[in-house]
């Protein structure tokens, strides 16, 4: 067991570009669920729309990248409008199911053999990251984070991603402190009261959906920039549910909640995963793994992290719904 590598890899995972993607997606979800009380179970759909709005124009139609980035925002807002006009008048539990359904419609369509010419089907799209490589100021060889190597491209994604995240988080923070943000929270607490004060609840919810959706779409972009490949499998419903785990872990309706939540979530998941990988590994020189094979082996150790993630979500909601740094008064769990 190489604990140095395990730890440095887990720490890297918690702050990597992949983590930034989770943070952004969860920040968007926090705007929906945490501040507005919208039970959006389709955040993965926003991330998928963002990812493919970048990858399709660039790798299929050779668009210049600023136009593709613009399309990311436009299509996320478009999806929010579509979802909003169709579902926001429904009850919360209907909203949850319809948003899941729409996210799955998006994923299944992206996955379809029929649309392979456009989306690349199950294999997804590659070759759309060259613009990011071109404007990369860091040298190719990258740096070492203790025992974990970070290549130049990933380092660039990491640094620019953190700057972007800080900008987004600051914007969300300022928005939620503004009168507009206070109306959102009042809608979360009591929709009818907000309405009786003459607030257009529907419009506020729609705006919240658009802002959170656009942030989620940018998160999707960072996810596929890090993987250098956009595949529909990354945008399954579990992505949305893990985002819920993250914001509950970090504290609902807190700007730093998604950031801290992601770091803890990914650190623990990666630590479990890579320790088990090491503990079940066999080499020709050392054929017996650390853990007995009747218990766990190379083929099934990867399932453990999902078990941990799933049961952790359940346990968190039961035992510590305000998360680690959350405020009990701010939890959005009583949306009806």
């Amino acid at each position: 067991m190489n604990w140095g590598l395990i730890l440095s890899n887990s720490v890297y995972t918690a702050i990597s570009a992949n983590a930034i993607a989770y943070m952004l997606v969860a920040t968007g979800l926090n705007v929906h669920f945490g501040y507005t009380g919208l039970l959006n179970f389709g955040q993965a759909g926003f991330a998928a729309i963002g990812a493919y709005s970048l990858s399709i124009p660039i790798s299929r139609f050779n668009w210049p990248w600023p136009c593709a980035v613009l399309l990311v925002i436009v299509s996320a807002i478009g999806l929010a409008l579509l979802l909003g006009f169709t579902t926001l008048r429904l009850r919360a539990d209907y909203l949850a199911i319809v948003t899941i359904a729409v996210a799955e419609i998006i994923r299944l369509s992206l996955n379809s053999v029929r649309f392979t010419w456009l989306t690349g089907g199950n294999d997804g799209l590659q070759g759309f990251t060259s613009f990011m490589e071109k404007i990369n100021p860091f040298p190719q060889q990258g740096i070492w984070l203790w025992k974990q190597k970070i290549d130049g491209y990933r380092l660039w994604l990491l640094v620019s991603g953190w700057v972007l995240l800080m900008v987004v988080a600051t914007l969300v923070y300022l928005l939620m402190r503004s009168p507009w943000g206070r109306v959102l929270r009042s809608i979360r607490e009591d929709e009818d009261a907000a309405r009786s004060l003459g607030k257009n609840v529907f419009a506020y919810k729609l705006q919240s959906l658009m802002i959170g959706g656009a942030i989620g779409a940018i998160g999707g972009v960072w996810l596929v920039l890090d993987k250098q490949s956009s595949q529909p499998g990354d945008f399954a419903t579990t992505f949305t549910f893990f985002s819920y785990t993250i914001i509950i872990l970090g504290g609902v309706a807190r700007v730093k909640g998604p950031v801290i939540g992601t770091m803890i979530f990914l650190f623990v998941i990666q630590l479990v995963d890579i320790s088990l990988q090491q503990a079940t590994k066999t080499t020709p020189s050392d054929p017996s793994p650390v853990l007995p094979t009747w218990l766990i082996d190379q083929n099934n150790y990867a399932q453990l992290r999902f078990m941990v993630a799933g049961f952790a979500l359940a346990a968190l909601v039961v035992f510590r719904p305000q998360g680690i740094f959350g405020d009990k008064r701010e939890q959005a769990f009583d949306v009806h």
Binding site: A92, Q303, G310, L313
Partner: peptide, 16 residues
């Protein structure tokens, strides 16, 4: 809502 999210967590965990 909490209970719904608990059931999601249980579902994911059990599935794996």
């Amino acid at each position: 809502t909490s209970m719904m999210i608990v059931s999601i967590g249980m579902a994911i965990g059990t599935r794996y």
